[in-house]
Design a binder for these strands. Structure first.
Lengths: 1352, 336
DNA sequence: CGCGTTGCTATAGACAATATCAGTATTTCTAAG
DNA sequence: CGTAGAAATACTGATATAAGTGCTAGCAAATTA
C-alpha cells in the first residue's frame, strides 16, 4: 500500500509534465507521419486549438517531432481531461499487475471483505467477543493495517451501545489497552473519540454527570485535528440528536462546530424539544385536546399563505433545505414531542389531516377535492401496492391538472413532495410487511368464510406456509445462537450451519426472512430456462441477497433512529426539517457502507431458508392411482428439489407444482408478490457520489458493475475527486422528470387483460401444455429427435408466453398502484455510461405497452409546433417515419377519422391503432390528439404525451462523425437533406444489387433470393453491425426474418448465411469510414488486452514464458467517466449449501483478461459510451432550459411543444461532443495509460532480429545461471526504464547503454514487415504500439446543425 | 502400408495376427452381411475380407484422410463413403439397389446370425455416437430393427471402463447399469499392460456378471497405430468389445427416469434422494420400501438391474408421480 | 520449417453445473518420551 | 507437559454426467512428419 502510494506520487509528477506536452506522448513508436496525415485534408482545423509544446520548459524523455499535430484542447472541458489524467495514475494498486484471487476461504486466509461482513454480522447480533477475534484476524492482514482503526471503531461503537460496558473508565481503558497490546500498529482517530464522547454523554442522567464533562473535554483534546471538535462531531452516525443538543446546552461545543444538517435543525426550530420540555409539557393523551391546537394552527397560518400566493417566484424553490421556505413553514407550526402509544397515534393522524388541509389552502381546489386529500392517509404503513384500488379515492394527477396557475401547480407539487415522504419510506422499506399483511388478511377472510382446501386462494396458502415456516426458522436461529455462544473458536458444524455463517442468520427478523424467502421463490418462477420452476443456485443466491438487502435497509433506518432517538417526527412541519437532515445524513451513511456479504454466506442463508420452506409448503392435488384406477386427493410439497441434465451438465432445479403454477398464472401477482424496486413518488436522491443517489433507503451504485472490483475502483477514484459532475447532473435531470400513468390507456389495457385472451403482444392465459402425442415405440432415432425438438419448442413457447404475460401482469399492477400519482424513475448507468431506470418492471424503457402507459406529469400547451410534432409522433409510431416531416403531418391529417374512432372506441371500433408499429403508444397519441381536436383551437391543448426524437442508427452517426465520413454521414442524416435517408433501405438496395450481379453469373441462391430483400430483412443486422455482430449472429437474425418467407428453418438458415455475407459487404462498402474506425478500435483493444505492465508481478507468471495478460481496455468518456471493460476469465467455484453445492464466481478475484471479449466488445462499447455522453449532455442542457426530458439510449423524449428546442439542444451537444477529434484523443489517452507496456509479438525465427534477440537471451541466461524466461526479460527492461528515468546522469547513461531484448526490438526499424511474415513462431517482447489512425474524411460535424432528420 | 498424416485421434490395431485372433474369438463370423462404421485405415476390414470374404461387406468411412488411405491400401474394400453419423445414411442403405446391402430382419427371440456391424470409435469424440447407438437397443430401431445384431467395437479403454464398471466403482453409472440390463458384453481384446483399462481388476471382478469368459487377445503398443492419440494424451490404450442385445424387455421410460435421477447423486442412499424423484417422493416411497430396508438404504452405485426395475415399478404405481415422459422438457436454453 | 490440424467461440444487456473422488494440506488426536 | 506422528478433516482440482454436433468462419494454439 505504502509502496504504491509513493510510486503513484512520483508518477503524478511525471504526469504533470506529460499533460502539458500531451501530444508528445502519442505515437512514440509509430512515427508521427500517420497522425499528421489524418488532418491534411481536414477542414476542421479551426478546432485544433493547440498546446504549445515549445513553451513547455520541461523536457520529456521523448523527443517531440516538430511536425507533429498538436492535440486539440477544447475551449470547454466536458470532464474528460481532469478525469482521464487522474485515472491514468489512480490512487490504488493497478489491477493488471498481478492476480488477486481470494477464492480460498480457509479461515486463516480470508479476504478483508469476508472478515468485514462477518465482523459486522457478529456485532449486529451482539457477539462482541467473537467480533474481537475477527478484529484480530483483520489486524493480521498486514496491507490492511492502515485502515484497521476503522474496523476497530466499528467494533467499539457497537460495544459502547451494547450495554456490556458499564463504566466510562472501562471503555476508555479498553481502548487504550487494545490499541497498545493487541493492535500496536494502529492509533485512534476522531471517530474513536466520537464514540467515547457519545458514550460519556449517555451518562447524562446521572447525578455525577459533572465529572464526565472533564472526560469529554479530555477526549476532544486527544484529537490531532486542528479543528478537533468539528472533526469529531462530523460522525453523525455515532451521535444522536440529543447528544448534539446536550453538547450545545452544556456549551461544550460551539454551534458552528456542529455539522450543517444538525445545525439547521437547531437553528430553525427554537422549539426543538429538549429534554426539559419533555418533562414539563404533559404528553397529549387523548384526542380531546386536539381541536384547540388545530384552530390555532389554522388561524395563525393565513398571513403566511397570503404571502405565499403573492410570491410565486420564491415558491419555485422546492428544496426543503432552503431557508426561505423553511421560515414560512415555521410560523404556523406547533411542535411537540409525543411518545408513542396507540391512543396517541390516532390523534396524531388527526392532526396530520388538519395540517394537510391547511397546507392546501390557497389552491383552487373544490371542497370535495380538499376533503379527499385531507382524508387521505399519508401516514399509512400500508404500501401503495397493497392498497386496494377502491380504497384509493384521490387522484393527484387529476387534481394537479385541475389547478389553474403555474404557481398553484408548483405549490401542489411541493405539497406532494413533502407529504409523500412517508409513503415513499413505506414503499421502499415495508414491502415485505405489506405482503405478509395481505396474506394474513386474505387468510382470515377465507377462514371466516370456511373455504374448502381446494379453493384456497394463493394468499391463503402463502400465509399458511409462512406461519409454519416461522417457528422452524426461529429454531434455526436459536441453534445458530447457541452455536455462537457455546464455543468461541470452535468452527465445527452444528445443526447444518457452521459458525462461519451463523451470525448472518441473526441479522434480520425471522418473520421478514420467511416472507422474503416465499416472495423470492415466487418471483423466480419460470426463470433460468426451467419449465415451471427455477435454478436452485439462483434461488439460493437471490434469497440470500434479498435478506442482505433487507438488512442493509434496516440498518439505515436503525442508524436514523439512533440519531433521532426520542425525537418525534409526527408534527408534519417539523418533520420537514428532520427529513432534510435525515436525507443529508443518509447520503453520508449510505456512502459509508462498503461491506458485502460473501457469496458463500448468501448461499448458506438462502439455502437454509429455502430448505425449510420446502418442508412446509404444501399444495392440495388430485392424482390418479393406477392400482385402483381412481382419483385420489393428497397434499404434496409445493416445491421439489431435483436435478436436470442440460447437455450433460447437471443443473439443480426447484420445481413448482403444477397446481400452484395454475394459480400463479391466474391471479394478480403484484398483490401477493411485492416487487421491491418501484418507481418513486418523491424525488429521487440526487446523485452525489458513486454510491449515493436514487432510492432513499437502499444503496444504489452509479454504475451497474458486474461485480468487478476494477470498475468500482476507477469509478470510486474519480467520484471521490469529484470529477464527474456532468454525469450526475444528467442523471438527476432524468430522475427528476415527473411521470404519471395514462389512465385512459390503462383502462383499455385493463379491460383487455381481464378477458384473459391474447391481444396484441400480450399472450393469453395458458394453463396446460399441449404436447405432441408420443411416438410408436420403434420410431427411428431421427423421428424421436424431431419429436423432442418440437416438444421443446412448444414448451419453450408456452414458458415464454407465460413469462411475458406474467411480466405484463406486473406492469399492469404496478401501473394500477400508481394511478394518479406523480412518479419518478431514478436512474443509474451500465458500465458504458448508458442510463437505465432502477425500477425494473415498469418504466419508460420497457416495451410498447409500458411506454403507452406513461405520460409526463407536467402538461404543456401544444402551440402550433407542438401540434405538428404530435402528429409527426403519431406517424412515427405507425412506422411512417421515413417520409419528410410534412408528409408525416399529412399522414396524421389523413387519418383524423381513424384516430377519432380509435380514441373513442379503442376496443369496439375499427381498431386502427392496433395496426400501428407501436400500438399502445399510438393509442395514447390518438387519444391525446383527439382531445386536442375537441378544443376550438387544438393548439391550446395541454399535452402530457412525450414525443420521441430518434437518431437514425445512432451508432453509425457517431462513427460517421468520428471518421469524418461524408458518404456515411449522408446516409445517417448528419447532412441536411430534404427527405430523411433510410439506411436500412439503402443497404437493402445495395444487397439487392449485389444479388442481381450474382444471379447473372448463375448463382442459384441469388436467383431465389432476388426481390425478397426488404428493409426489414436487413434492419437488425445493419443496426447490430455497429455492436460488432458476428457473421453467425447476423445469419441467425436474417434467418429469423426469412423463416416467414420460407418456412423451412434449415433453408432459411442457409440463405441467411448467404445474405449475411452480402449485407456485411454492403455495409462495409457504404460506411467505409465507420469501418476503418471500427477496425482501428478493434486492433487497439486487441493489443491492449495482450499487453503486459513493466512492473508486473512476476509471481503471476505461472509459466515464465507464457505470461497471463491482465490489462483490460480502459478509457475515459468525454464526460470524464472512466470505463473499464469487465471482461475477464471468471474462476467459478463450487460452494456447499444445505441443498446442494452451487457454482458461482468469486466476485473479488482478478483474473487474466478475456482478450477475445475485450476485443469484440470495445468498438461497440466505445460508441455506446459516446452516445451515452451525448444523452447525458443533452439531458443536462434540457434540464437547464426547463424541459422535461427522458431517453431510451438514442431516443430522446420531451413535450410536443418543446421538441424544437430539444432538437436544437441535442444538435448543439452532439457538435460539442464531436468538435474534438475523439479518436485522436483516445489514442493519446491510450498511449499515456499504457505507456511502457510491452506486447508479445511473434516473428520468424530466421529473421535477423530474431537472431539478435536469441543472442541477447543467451547472455541473460548465462547471467542468471538458468534459462531466461519472458518474465526475466520484462524484469530487465524494467531496470532499463528505471535507469533511463533516473535523475542521476550516470544512471541515465547506464540505461542508454543497457541492451535488453525489448530495446533491440525497439531499435529495429522494420518490425511491421516481420510481423506480417507468414510463419511467425518466435515470441518476442516489443513496446506496446498502437496502429495509425485512419485518415479523417471531409465531413464537418458543424453541418448537422441544419439537418432536420438527424434526430427525428 | 500407407498411413495418413493425421488421424483425428482414431487408433487401430494393425497387427493381423491379433486381428485374426479377435475375429476368431468373437464367434460371429462368417456372416453374410458385415457393415463397418468408421473403419479408419482399414486393417480390421482387410482381415475380415481376407478371412471370410462376406458376400455383403460394406464400409462407411467418409473422413478424407482415411478414405484416401483406404482406397490406396485396400482397393478391394467397398467403402461407400457415407457418414455413419447421419441417420439418413441407413435409410439410403436400405433403399439403395446399388449398394445391395439388405440384411434379413430376424426375430428378437434368437441372436441374429445374418448381420454384424463393426465400428472403430476410438476417437473420444465419438463417445456420444456410441451412446446413441446403444440407446437404439431400447427402441429396437436403427440397425437393431434387424434383430439381436452383434456389434464389435473398438473404443478407448476409458470408455470401456465406463461400460463395464462394476458395482461400487466410481465409474459405475447409468450406462453401466444399462449395459448390464440390456446387453451381453464381452471383451475381445485389450492391451497387455492393462489389467483393465481405467478400472482395477475389472475383468476378474465382473467376469461372472457381465463379461462372458472368452479367450481374450492381448496386444502391445507396437501393434497400435498411432500409439498415442495426442502427444499429451494419457497412456490408456484401446479395447475391442462385443456387444449383443440380450433381448430383455423393460418399460424403458420410467426406468430411464429413475436411473437418471438416482444416479445423479450416486453414492447417496435411495432414501435420501427419493425426494428428488418428484413432489413428495420420500413420503411415497418410504412406506413402499419399509420391508426392503436393504434397498431403501442402498446407494445407486450398488443397485442391481433388478432393483432399478423394482423401483421403477413402484414408481409407476404412484398416483402423484411426475410426468416422467416429458422430463426432458423441464429445462431448455433460454435463448431462442 | 513450412505445413495442415484441432479447438474454441460467436451482439449487448443481465442473472449463475454439480456430485464425487483422489490427492494434498491442515488440524486434531493420541500416545510414548 | 510438550511433542512427534498418526488419524481425521478440510481443501483443491479433476472428472463424469447426456447423447445429435441447430451451422460456418476466423483466429489461436498445439501437434507432427
Amino acid at each position: 500500500m505504502l509502496r504504491s502510494t509513493v510510486r503513484s506520487r512520483s508518477v503524478n509528477l511525471n504526469l504533470a509534465v506529460s499533460s502539458s506536452t500531451a501530444s508528445s506522448l502519442s505515437s512514440r513508436f509509430i512515427g508521427c507521419n500517420d497522425s499528421c496525415k489524418r488532418y491534411i485534408s481536414s477542414k476542421g482545423s479551426n478546432l485544433l486549438a493547440s498546446l504549445d509544446v515549445n513553451n513547455s520548459s520541461v523536457k520529456s524523455s521523448f523527443e517531440v517531432a516538430p511536425q507533429q499535430r498538436k492535440l486539440n484542447k477544447p475551449q470547454i472541458d466536458l470532464g474528460f481531461w481532469k478525469s482521464s489524467k487522474f485515472s491514468i495514475n489512480p490512487n490504488f494498486e493497478p489491477f493488471d499487475r498481478s492476480y488477486r484471487s481470494i477464492i480460498n476461504s480457509s479461515s486463516t486466509n480470508r479476504s478483508v471483505m469476508q472478515l468485514w461482513s462477518l465482523l459486522e454480522a457478529c456485532l449486529c447480533s451482539n457477539y462482541v467477543d467473537r467480533a474481537f477475534h475477527i478484529l484480530e484476524s483483520l489486524y493480521a492482514i498486514k496491507p490492511h493495517r492502515i485502515n484497521f482503526i476503522d474496523d476497530y471503531n466499528m467494533y467499539l461503537s457497537y460495544l459502547a451501545d451494547s450495554g456490556k460496558i458499564k463504566k466510562l473508565s472501562d471503555l476508555s481503558l479498553k481502548v487504550t489497552r487494545d490499541l497498545e497490546k493487541h493492535f500496536p500498529d494502529s492509533t485512534y482517530n476522531d471517530r474513536t473519540i466520537a464514540i467515547l464522547v457519545h458514550f460519556a454523554l449517555s451518562f447524562s442522567k446521572r447525578s455525577d454527570f459533572g465529572s464526565y464533562i472533564t472526560d469529554i473535554n479530555t477526549f476532544f483534546s486527544m484529537s490531532n485535528n486542528k479543528n478537533a471538535k468539528k472533526a469529531v462531531l462530523k460522525n453523525t452516525d455515532i451521535f444522536t440528536l440529543n447528544d448534539y443538543k446536550l453538547l450545545r446546552d452544556l456549551n461544550l461545543v460551539e454551534a458552528s462546530e456542529l455539522p450543517i444538517a444538525i445545525r439547521n435543525i437547531f437553528d430553525k426550530n427554537p422549539s426543538y424539544p429538549s429534554e426539559d420540555t419533555e418533562k414539563t409539557i404533559p404528553p397529549i393523551k387523548s384526542a380531546k385536546s386536539i381541536p384547540e391546537t388545530n384552530t390555532n394552527d389554522l388561524k395563525n397560518d393565513d398571513p403566511t399563505l397570503q404571502q405565499l400566493k403573492t410570491s410565486p417566484s420564491e415558491e419555485a424553490i422546492l428544496d426543503p433545505d432552503d431557508t426561505e421556505i423553511s421560515k414560512k413553514w415555521d410560523l404556523n407550526e406547533n411542535i411537540d414531542t409525543i411518545e408513542k402509544d396507540a391512543g396517541e397515534l390516532l390523534s396524531v393522524d388527526t392532526i396530520g389531516m388538519k395540517v394537510i388541509r391547511h397546507s392546501l389552502q390557497g389552491l383552487s381546489l373544490t371542497e370535495t377535492q380538499k376533503q379527499k386529500i385531507a382524508s387521505f392517509n399519508f401516514d399509512s404503513e400500508t404500501s401503495i401496492l397493497a392498497t386496494k384500488l377502491e380504497d384509493k379515492s384521490v387522484d393527484f394527477y387529476e387534481i394537479y391538472c385541475s389547478l389553474k396557475t403555474d404557481a398553484e401547480r408548483e405549490k401542489f407539487d411541493e405539497f406532494l413532495e413533502n407529504f409523500n415522504q412517508d409513503r415513499q419510506r413505506v414503499l421502499e422499506t415495508r414491502s415485505t410487511e405489506a405482503a405478509k399483511e395481505r396474506w394474513k388478511h386474505d387468510f382470515m377472510d377465507a377462514k371466516s368464510r370456511g373455504e374448502a382446501p381446494f379453493e384456497k386462494k394463493l394468499n391463503v396458502k402463502l400465509w399458511e406456509w409462512y406461519s409454519q415456516m416461522l417457528p422452524l426458522i426461529k429454531k434455526e436461529v436459536e441453534q445458530a445462537n447457541e452455536l455462537l455462544q457455546d464455543s468461541l473458536i470452535d468452527k465445527r458444524k452444528a445443526g447444518g450451519i457452521s459458525s462461519d455463517y451463523a451470525p448472518y442468520l441473526n441479522l434480520v427478523d425471522p418473520e421478514k426472512m420467511c416472507v422474503i424467502t416465499i416472495l423470492e421463490l415466487l418471483k423466480l418462477n419460470s426463470t433460468g430456462g426451467v419449465f415451471e420452476g427455477m435454478r436452485t443456485a439462483r434461488a439460493v443466491i437471490s434469497v440470500g441477497k434479498a435478506i442482505e438487502l433487507e438488512f442493509r435497509s434496516e440498518q439505515l433506518i436503525r442508524n436514523e433512529m439512533h440519531t433521532f432517538k426520542n425525537v418525534s417526527t409526527k408534527p408534519h412541519v417539523f418533520k420537514k426539517y428532520v427529513w432534510s437532515a435525515k436525507k443529508r445524513l443518509r447520503d453520508h451513511n449510505i456512502e459509508k457502507s462498503k461491506i458485502e456479504w460473501p457469496q458463500a454466506a448468501r448461499a448458506q442463508i438462502g439455502s437454509i431458508m429455502i430448505s425449510t420452506l420446502l418442508h412446509v409448503a404444501k399444495v392440495n392435488v388430485r392424482g390418479h392411482d393406477p392400482k385402483t384406477n381412481k382419483y385420489v386427493y393428497g397434499e404434496l410439497p409445493a416445491f421439489s428439489h431435483s436435478y436436470q441434465y442440460h447437455n450433460g451438465a447437471k443443473i439443480g432445479v426447484l420445481k413448482i407444482h403444477k397446481s400452484l403454477i395454475k394459480q400463479l398464472n391466474g391471479e394478480r401477482l403484484a398483490t401477493s408478490v411485492q416487487p421491491q424496486q418501484m418507481p418513486m413518488i418523491v424525488k429521487p436522491r440526487k446523485w452525489v457520489s458513486w454510491n449515493s443517489g436514487g432510492y432513499h433507503y437502499s444503496q444504489s451504485i452509479l454504475i451497474r458493475t458486474r461485480d468487478s472490483p476494477e470498475q468500482v475502483a476507477y469509478l470510486k477514484a474519480v467520484s471521490e475527486e469529484n470529477l464527474i459532475p456532468t454525469i450526475y447532473s444528467g442523471l438527476n435531470v432524468i430522475g427528476l422528470t415527473g411521470w404519471t400513468v395514462n389512465r385512459k390507456v390503462f383502462n383499455v389495457l385493463s379491460e383487455v387483460w381481464n378477458t384473459g385472451k391474447q391481444f396484441l403482444d400480450i399472450p393469453g392465459i395458458q394453463d396446460d401444455m399441449v404436447v405432441l402425442p408420443p411416438l410408436p415405440s420403434n420410431a427411428e432415432p431421427e423421428e424421436v429427435r424431431e419429436w423432442k425438438l418440437k416438444n421443446k419448442e412448444i414448451a419453450n413457447k408456452i414458458s415464454s408466453d407465460r413469462s411475458v404475460r406474467c411480466d405484463s401482469n406486473y406492469k399492469l399492477e404496478i401501473a394500477r398502484a400508481f394511478l394518479g400519482e406523480k412518479i419518478y424513475f431514478p436512474h443509474n448507468l451500465d458500465f458504458r455510461g448508458r442510463a437505465y431506470p432502477l425500477s425494473p418492471h415498469f418504466n419508460h424503457l420497457g416495451n410498447d405497452m409500458s411506454r403507452g402507459l406513461l405520460i409526463f406529469w407536467k402538461g404543456r400547451r401544444l402551440g402550433p409546433q407542438g401540434l405538428k410534432w404530435l402528429k409527426v409522433h403519431l406517424a412515427n409510431l405507425f412506422g411512417y417515419d421515413k417520409a419528410s416531416l410534412d408528409d408525416r403531418i399529412a399522414f396524421a391529417n389523413q387519418h383524423i377519422e381513424d384516430l377519432k374512432d380509435s380514441a373513442e372506441h379503442p376496443l369496439d371500433g375499427k381498431g386502427w391503432w392496433q395496426s400501428a408499429d407501436k400500438p399502445w403508444q399510438a393509442l395514447a397519441t390518438c387519444m391525446e390528439l383527439n382531445e386536442a381536436f375537441k378544443l376550438e383551437n387544438p393548439e391550446d391543448f395541454i399535452s402530457h404525451q412525450p414525443v420521441h426524437q430518434d437518431g437514425t442508427c445512432n451508432g453509425l452517426q457517431h462513427y460517421a462523425a468520428l471518421g469524418g465520413d461524408v458518404e456515411g454521414a449522408i446516409q445517417v442524416n448528419l447532412v441536411p437533406s430534404p427527405k430523411p435517408q433510410d439506411v436500412y433501405n439503402h443497404v437493402a438496395k445495395l444487397v439487392e444489387a449485389r444479388l442481381d450481379v450474382a444471379a447473372k453469373e448463375g448463382d442459384e441462391t441469388a436467383k431465389i433470393l432476388q426481390g425478397k430483400i426488404t428493409r426489414k430483412v436487413v434492419k437488425q443486422t445493419v443496426m447490430t453491425n455497429v455492436y460488432g455482430v458476428t457473421f453467425i449472429g447476423a445469419t441467425r437474425q436474417i434467418a429469423k426474418q426469412l423463416t416467414e418467407k420460407f418456412d423451412d428453418k434449415q433453408l432459411a438458415f442457409e440463405y441467411g448465411g448467404y445474405l449475411a455475407k452480402h449485407v456485411f459487404a454492403a455495409i462495409r462498402e457504404s460506411f467505409k469510414g465507420a469501418h476503418e474506425i471500427q477496425d482501428w478500435l478493434g486492433e487497439c483493444s486487441k493489443r491492449i488486452s495482450r499487453a503486459i505492465r513493466l512492473d508486473v508481478d512476476s509471481k503471476s507468471f505461472r509459466n515464465g514464458n507464457k505470461p497471463d495478460f491482465m490489462s483490460s481496455v480502459i478509457w475515459t468518456t468525454p464526460l470524464g467517466l472512466p470505463i473499464v471493460q469487465p471482461y475477464r476469465d471468471e474462476s467459478k467455484k463450487q460452494i456447499k449449501t444445505n441443498l446442494q453445492t452451487i457454482f458461482i464466481a468469486d466476485p473479488l478475484a482478478v483474473n487474466p483478461v478475456n482478450a477475445r471479449r475485450q476485443k469484440s466488445g470495445f468498438p461497440p462499447n466505445f460508441i455506446h459510451s459516446l452516445d451515452a455522453s451525448h444523452m447525458l449532455l443533452s439531458a443536462t442542457k434540457c434540464g437547464e432550459h426547463g424541459l422535461d426530458f427522458a431517453s431510451v439510449h438514442d431516443s430522446y423524449w420531451t413535450h410536443a411543444c418543446d421538441v424544437d428546442k430539444m432538437n436544437y439542444l441535442l444538435r448543439e451537444e452532439f457538435i460539442k461532443l464531436h468538435e474534438v477529434d475523439l479518436i485522436e484523443r483516445l489514442k493519446t489517452e491510450f498511449n499515456q495509460r499504457y505507456k511502457d507496456y510491452l506486447q508479445v509479438c511473434k516473428i520468424p525465427r530466421t529473421s535477423p532480429l530474431a537472431r539478435k534477440i536469441v543472442e541477447c537471451r543467451k547472455q541473460l541466461s548465462t547471467k542468471l545461471g538458468r534459462p531466461a524466461t519472458l518474465a526475466d526479460e520484462i524484469h530487465e527492461e524494467k531496470i532499463r526504464k528505471e535507469l533511463l528515468n533516473s535523475i542521476e546522469s550516470e544512471k541515465q547513461e547506464a540505461g542508454k547503454n543497457m541492451v535488453t531484448t525489448v530495446s533491440i526490438a525497439e531499435d529495429y526499424k522494420d518490425i511491421d514487415t516481420l510481423l506480417k511474415a507468414t510463419a511467425c513462431h518466435m515470441p518476442i517482447l516489443t513496446p506496446l504500439t498502437l496502429p495509425p489512425i485512419p485518415t479523417k474524411g471531409q465531413f464537418d460535424v458543424q453541418e448537422l446543425r441544419k439537418s432536420a432528420y438527424f434526430f427525428s | 502400408m500407407q498411413l495418413p498424416k493425421f488421424h483425428y485421434g482414431t487408433r487401430h490395431l494393425i497387427d493381423s495376427t491379433a486381428i485374426r485372433g479377435i475375429l476368431h474369438n468373437s464367434k460371429v463370423f462368417p456372416r453374410s452381411h458385415v457393415l463397418e462404421l468408421y473403419p479408419g485405415i482399414g486393417p480390421f476390414s482387410n482381415e475380415i475380407q481376407k478371412l471370410y470374404n462376406p458376400p455383403h461387406h460394406l464400409l462407411l468411412e467418409p473422413r478424407k484422410n482415411f478414405k484416401a488411405t483406404l482406397s490406396e491400401n485396400f482397393p478391394n474394400l467397398n467403402n461407400c463413403e457415407l457418414d455413419p453419423y447421419d441417420w439418413s445414411t441407413y435409410h439410403i442403405l436400405a433403399k439403395s439397389q446399388e449398394l445391395n446391402f439388405h440384411p434379413l430382419i430376424q426375430d428378437w427371440s434368437k441372436p441374429n446370425d445374418d448381420l454384424v456391424f463393426v465400428a472403430n470409435l476410438t476417437n473420444p469424440h465419438n463417445e456420444g455416437l456410441l451412446m446413441q447407438w446403444l440407446d437404439c437397443i431400447t427402441r429396437r430401431n436403427w440397425l437393431y430393427k434387424f434383430g439381436k445384431v452383434p456389434m464389435i467395437i473398438w473404443i478407448n479403454s476409458h470408455l470401456a471402463g465406463k461400460l463395464l464398471a462394476p458395482y461400487g466403482s466410481s465409474l459405475r453409472s447409468k450406462r453401466s447399469t444399462f449395459m448390464e440390463t440390456l446387453t451381453e458384453i464381452s471383451v475381445l481384446a485389450h492391451h497387455k499392460d492393462e489389467t483393465y483399462p481405467g478400472v482395477k481388476n475389472h475383468i476378474v471382478e465382473t467376469q461372472d456378471s457381465n463379461t462372458k469368459p472368452q479367450e481374450i487377445v492381448e496386444f502391445d503398443d507396437s501393434m497400435i497405430w498411432p500409439i498415442k492419440a495426442t502427444k499429451s494424451a494419457s497412456s490408456e490404450s484401446i479395447v475391442c468389445l462385443k456387444v449383443v442385445p440380450n433381448g430383455k424387455e423393460i418399460d424403458f421410460e420410467p426406468w430411464e427416469f429413475i436411473t437418471k435421477h438416482l444416479y445423479m447423486s450416486k453414492i447417496t442412499p435411495f432414501k435420501d434422494i427419493a425426494d428428488s424423484l418428484g413432489h413428495g417422493g420420500y413420503e411415497y416411497f418410504e412406506p413402499q420400501f419399509r420391508d426392503n430396508q436393504e434397498l431403501w438404504n442402498k446407494k445407486p452405485v450398488n443397485m442391481t438391474p433388478k432393483e432399478f426395475i423394482e423401483i421403477s415399478n413402484v414408481f409407476m404405481n404412484w398416483p402423484f408421480k411426475p410426468d416422467y415422459r416429458s422430463d426432458f422438457l423441464n429445462i431448455f436454453s433460454e435463448d431462442m
